[in-house]
Computed example of a mutant assay.
Amino acid sequence: MKNTCFLAALALGAAACQSSGAPTAEAARAAVRHYLQSQPNAALYVPDSASVVEVATHWQVLVPRTDWARRMPSRAAFAVDKQSGVVSTRAVK
């Protein structure tokens, strides 16, 4: 079952393996942490320092990057759908 979820996530380009969604900020932070572990540049992110903001039907998670120190923006943005738990990247302005 886990491999099926992983393959579905690869096909969608998002982390879609969380069937219970992300009803809380901690669940959203965990979903982004899980998503980042699958990225080739995962070591550049600092998920323990992520900030989470509730935005209507999703969570916005801002994760600092070590290679973006002393520059603006210094964080990568992700959106986590509350219902499905799907993680998607967002542009940072």
Rank of each mutant, 00 (worst) to 15 (best):
L10P: 07
Q37V: 01
V80M: 02
H58A: 13
G13T: 01
L62A: 04
R29Y: 06
W68F: 06
R70N: 11
V52E: 02
L10W: 08
V53S: 08
V86E: 14
H58I: 04
V92M: 11
V80H: 00
V53A: 14
E54H: 07
A8I: 06
V55M: 06
Q83S: 13
A16I: 01
A16W: 03
W59C: 05
F6Y: 09
D81H: 11
R33T: 14
A30K: 09
S74W: 12
L44W: 11
A42S: 09
D48P: 13
R70V: 06
A22M: 00
N41L: 02
K93M: 04
C5I: 10
V55K: 04
T66G: 14
Q60K: 07
S84T: 15
S49K: 12
A76V: 07
L44N: 15
Q37M: 08
C5H: 10
G85H: 00
A50Y: 00
A15N: 10
Y45F: 05
T66L: 09
P47R: 02
Y45D: 00
D81K: 09
R33Y: 08
A43Y: 08
R90M: 10
W59Q: 06
A16S: 05
T57S: 08
N41C: 01
S49F: 06
S88I: 12
V61A: 06
E26A: 12
A9S: 09
G85E: 00
A42W: 06
A69I: 12
F6V: 15
A28C: 07
A43Q: 12
Q83E: 09
A30Y: 00
L12F: 13
A76C: 08
E26V: 13
E26M: 10
R65H: 10
M1G: 13
D81V: 14
A91T: 15
A56F: 14
C5Q: 15
W68Y: 12
A25D: 10
L62Y: 04
A50V: 05
R29I: 03
A11C: 05
N3H: 12
L62W: 06
F78E: 00
V92Y: 04
A8T: 13
V52F: 01
Q83W: 01
M1P: 11
P73Q: 03
V32C: 06
